[in-house]
């Protein structure tokens, strides 16, 4: 047995008392540490929760409910419909006016689709989304061009305007066409009234574009161009694939 042990057994000596005091102090320190750690954790959690709340609040003020959004003439909350309402085949086209492959699709397959529309077989639901807003040097060209396309729908010249927007498609990363250029293209398409120019300059349909984009995302679309024929997505929207799908759907 050690010296200390013997003394301990005999009763509290000065060394034993010191030992007890030391232990007590250590316990107090440990308890204090736990308390401090708990407070720090609570403060950090509170800061993070409040931050999340701020973000959600900002998002809610930015998002307009569809009921309060102006919708272009002949359009729905989801897009612009071209063609006879009772056409047997519906082709959904999700497009971004800044997306180069969307232009390729329009150049390659647009004329074929236009023939089907003229024949009354097909109606096209164009969904002009703003997926690529971050690629126009801060000017949000995708939103601006799609909103201007809404103005063109108001003026009844959407199909022609769509072609002109693609014919003058800016490069990704460039600021894109100015409002004046968007108005000039509208004039070229036949929208000569001052209300078209006002509509473009005031970005009247930018909330509608945000809604169209949101609905596209909710429909599971996260790439452009995405093409659906009577609700079935084409894995690769080539002219051949579109023609085959339209012919098959028209025969049903």
């Amino acid at each position: 047995m050690s010296k200390r042990g013997r003394r301990g057994a005999q009763g509290p000596g000065p060394e034993r008392a010191r030992e007890v005091a030391r232990q007590k102090l250590a316990e107090q320190r440990a308890a204090q540490r736990r308390r401090t750690a708990a407070i720090v954790a609570a403060v950090v959690a509170a800061v993070l929760l409040v931050s999340a709340g701020v973000g959600i609040a900002i998002y809610n003020t930015q998002t307009k409910s569809p009921a309060h959004t102006a919708i272009p003439k002949g359009a729905t909350a989801a897009g612009i419909v071209v063609g006879k309402p009772d056409a047997k085949v519906t082709v959904d086209v999700y497009l971004d006016f800044l997306c180069p492959v969307c232009k390729q699709f329009e150049d390659a397959t647009g004329p074929t689709l236009a023939r089907y529309v003229a024949a009354g077989t097909v109606k096209i639901d164009y969904h002009p989304v703003a997926f690529l807003d971050r690629l126009s040097a801060g000017t949000r060209y995708s939103t601006r061009a799609a909103a201007a396309a809404g103005c063109a729908a108001d003026a009844g010249v959407f199909p022609k305007y769509l072609q002109l927007l693609y014919a003058h498609q800016p490069r990704e990363g460039s600021p894109g066409l100015t409002a004046a250029e968007l108005v000039a293209l509208g004039r070229q398409a036949g929208a000569t009234s001052s209300s078209f120019a006002d509509c473009v300059e005031q970005k009247r349909y930018q909330d509608w574009v945000a809604g169209v984009t949101d609905l596209a995302s909710k429909a599971g679309v996260n790439a452009t161009p995405t093409v659906l024929v009577n609700g079935t997505r084409l894995p690769a929207p080539t002219t051949a694939a579109v023609t085959a799908a339209v012919e098959a759907a028209a025969k049903k």
Partner: peptide, 10 residues
């Protein structure tokens, strides 16, 4: 929307 809007601020 809660995660998408809250996460960046967190």
């Amino acid at each position: 929307p809660l995660v998408g809007a809250g996460l960046p601020f967190v």
